[in-house]
Design a protein around this nucleic acid. Structure first.
Lengths: 229, 229
DNA sequence: TTTACTTCACGTTAAATTGACGCAAACAAT
DNA sequence: ATTGTTTGCGTCAATTTAACGTGAAGTAAA
């Protein structure tokens, strides 16, 4: 048997699916690559794991240097192993997804990219590598997760109305949910806390502002959709 | 920027949590290591990814050479990245779990192990590396998965009775489930198909034998447990 | 200040599902 | 035949869900 470090190892990359929600639209952040492979092609932001880094270290390094973000919700998605997924050689990718509030960050293209842009998840361009596959899996994960785990607030402002939360759910799950039943479920589960404040300056009745209940745990509610896949 | 393959890469290992069900007991297969590190310690079966292998290739190589198994249910669990998880150096582990019917395989210790043994999931020994952590996560995944995805049959014989399936659920979920309500749910969801045959040679009424309904998809049923965590 | 229009907050009701049991037929052993 | 146990089917009250009604709160226009 050879000594431990003489074996050849694949490279290990992290690829990020960064979700943002704004104007009733769920979007994903993509980079336009400056270099080969997939030069001038849209791809997920990513980077190689350094020897002393944990996955989250790498995630934050990418988020910070390429996008100027920190302190965001991150969750590991899946690891992708197709032998030919990177033309440069064997690269394993660990997918993570992030939920952010675009209002809190202004994204800037780093030195590695021509451009950084938000794309509506329903109007995605062709993606390089196997990133279409990673993206699809992330979207599916977000959809199933939001039904039983209160992560919706990660995409909203600190204070939000129940109608805003309701629209977020309809947007992500791509379905209609009865407004009144939704409200009752959310309130019964104590998903949110009424702040007593109201959103001012709207043309109609001023709705109450809520904040997320940090005590709330997974599986204390269940938003049903007719045909989950 | 250095050429692509001059960067140092972590090693990439696959670790397997192999579940088997027999005599109303859920067990996991462990190896007793012959070599350092963790010599004479129990660990999950695992191995390093070779450059041309996919994860599943590696899984089957481990299953076949160390345990003499093939064609089993396998699913990716999670990837583990703690910097100090392996004393030999930086090793990323991709966890997979397998569901097998122990009746179909006789496990044999390969050249790498002193011993291979099934351990009741409730009576686990101390494990080497971070394998306790991987095991716990696998058990949790199995528990939540079996509630909405029909994977139970992977652990049973081709033909089984509803009582056997019921006992499997109670064993895995560590709870009591009303026999009659369970039967109704399973049948209403068309989880199983009645073969018309009966299990003979029992001391009481001979129950009907069912087989798994391969048309059945995820989320067509839901077994509830009082306090999932 | 009325009127019109929209959203918000809170109810109501029937249908569906769940949870907790009852019971008789099937079988082996006595 | 009698006994003891498991199996398969059924009942029913309690809970949850889905579908929808309505009046108050607010803005804008008459």
């Amino acid at each position: 048997m050879k000594p431990f470090h003489e074996y050849k190892n694949p490279s290990l990359a992290i690829d990020l699916v960064v979700f943002g929600y704004h104007d009733n639209t769920l979007s994903v952040l993509l980079l336009n690559r400056k270099e080969e492979p997939f030069k001038d092609c849209w791809t997920l932001p990513g980077g190689f794991l350094q020897m002393e880094e944990t996955f989250l270290d790498t995630c934050y390094r990418i988020l910070q240097t390429k996008l100027g973000m920190k302190e965001v919700f991150l969750e590991q998605l899946y690891s992708f192993d197709a032998v030919d997924r990177d033309p440069r050689g064997r690269v394993i990718a660990v997918g993570y997804y992030a939920l952010i509030n675009p209002a809190k960050f202004s994204v800037v293209a780093g030195s590695m990219a021509n451009d950084v842009k938000w794309f509506n998840v329903r109007k995605m361009p062709v993606l390089g590598f196997d990133h279409k596959h990673i993206f699809k899996q992330a979207l599916q994960r977000l959809r199933s997760k939001i039904q039983y785990d209160p992560v919706g607030f990660e995409l909203l402002d600190e204070l939000f109305t129940i109608t805003e939360l309701h629209e977020l759910y309809e947007c992500i799950l791509q379905t209609t949910i009865d407004r009144r039943n939704f409200r009752r479920k959310i309130l019964d589960a104590a998903y949110v806390i009424n702040t007593g404040l109201k959103r001012e300056g709207l043309k109609n009745r001023h709705p109450e502002l809520y904040k997320f209940n940090k005590q709330l745990k997974k599986n204390s509610f269940q938003i049903n959709v007719p045909n989950e896949t």
